[in-house]
Design a protein around this nucleic acid. Sequence first.
DNA 1: GCCGTTTTCGGCCCGACTGTTTTCAGTCG
Length: 603
Amino acid sequence: MTQAEDAVPPSVKSASNRDIARVFTDIATLLQARGDTIFKTRAYSRAADTIDNLQFELADAADDEDRLRAIPGFGDAIVSKVQELVRTGRLEFFEKLKAEMPAGILELTQVPGIGPKTAMRAAEGLGIHSREQLAASIESGQFEQLPRMGKKAAQNILRHLNTRMSQGERIAIGTALPEAERVMAALQAACPGIRNLTYAGSLRRHRETIGDVDMLCSADDPGAVMDAFSSLTAVRNIMAKGETKSMVVLDSGLQVDLRVVPDAAFAATLLYFTGSKEHGIRLRDRAINRGLSLNEYGATDTATGKTETFTSEEQIYQRLGLPYIPPELREDSGELAAAERGELPQLITLADVRGDLHSHTDWTDGRAYIEDMANAAKDAGFEYLAVTDHSKSATVANGLSVERLAEHNEAVRVLDNKLDGIHLLTGTEMDILIDGKMDYPDDALAELDIVLGSIHSYMDQDRATMTARIITAMQNENLDIIAHLTTRLIGKRAPVELDFDAICKAAVETGTVLEINASTQRLDLKDLHIRRAMDLGVIFSIGTDSHRMHQFVDARYGVGMARRGWCTPQRVINTLSHADFLRFVSTPKSGRYAFMDRYEHQS
DNA sequence: GCCGTTTTCGGCCCGACTGTTTTCAGTCG
């Protein structure tokens, strides 16, 4: 459990789950193109989905055959292929399959509207092996001659080719969520008869990136909703427009799908389109065992053929003998078993977060005065705010010298006395130096209410060195929180290499807190880290890392990650009241985990 | 290829939309 998400896959010996999942997805595509049975293809594609949601790295379990066999959908063939991939970094079966198929099948199927069958016919019949050849063939009018193809279908594919989504990019949730909210507001205004308008899909599950936005609503006149939706000013392309479902691409490149259903079907449809796909499949399996067929409209009794409808998702789960499972947990990663045992966590909510422990001002690289940031934090609903400007080694960020730090503290204290409705804490986001040492002397750190430590330099250290560096830093009594542990920037910078379990163990031993950084660029720790750290007993803070006044609302993204990591409010220090928080930081580090334990038992 | 308190063989989640077809294949989610 380390990094790897955005890193270029190395040639051998470290196939990440994502690498392995991609190979299986590709195998499924090629088998389907070749005409193999759909059930065989589905076995590979289900295995890929399962791997994507796995809570541990297959590379760490490749020698443990029992553990692999215990994974649903893993039989002889899948297990041995996983082992081969982990051990050698390649898969003979896959290489042979690719070699015997026409080139370009995998690239072509990335284009919306082109599936395995069409890709195969294009490659074999027309010698099309790339995106460029496909575009040229459509423009020449040749492509539409293919069986089951035509002028209109071909032109649609060409439009897809020219949109951002055809590149297979996913959009950060920090971009997708506000955009979805704008679309919903515009649609509601244009079509007042709409009820229950909401987003579903990976956005509702709060994944860190979103492929496209699924929306749904109920209304008496679906046609009017479809018209209003496709006429929104933000719409660039209409990809599909039916009686109850339309798909559009916005000017921003974001694809939005909207479905309209009757009120009676709304809950079932919401459940269905919130996913994840795997969670939905498990629910439908469960329904079948109870003599029900679960679909977008309700549950049909397989014996009588009568369809039962529901007014809420809660009711549907109840009908299946389960408590309500929040969307963030619906990843088929143990939530159904936990629900059955009555052991679902009471997830943290945005309302639980009472303070923000990470912010910057114009003293370093922030863009607003301390006072303005404090008022913005208050407006965002926080009771307290730690002002944590950068330390002296962060020269590009105009880091504070020891002298300026003292002035900074004074300025924060003066404002704290002056302002009503928000408490200010003195602090720093201090660089952890190359060898794990602090960037300020201990006596300067001891003056502060709160000290965050961050890696901002020498990010390419090897795993062992980086791990030791961070653990060394955690051993300092003054360092309260490790901020954005892996330093990744989503889609831009790979995470540092580190031994995450060792870091968590050290955090527990030293009484150090790990930050869940809510900045939309970071989301660091991410969901899988948080889930693992929860299991290892770690306590967290949630920080917005705000540099501008409007960024305090980003706390919701941190809460979303935390919820995906099964995190409870009792494990997050800034759910404490201001008074309790002061007690927390005045407790020696060795007593802080126990402090939160007591808090957990009280509430 | 996987899987089994109905099964070790015979099943495998469900439905909308599109564009092509005279009833449906392909794609998508």
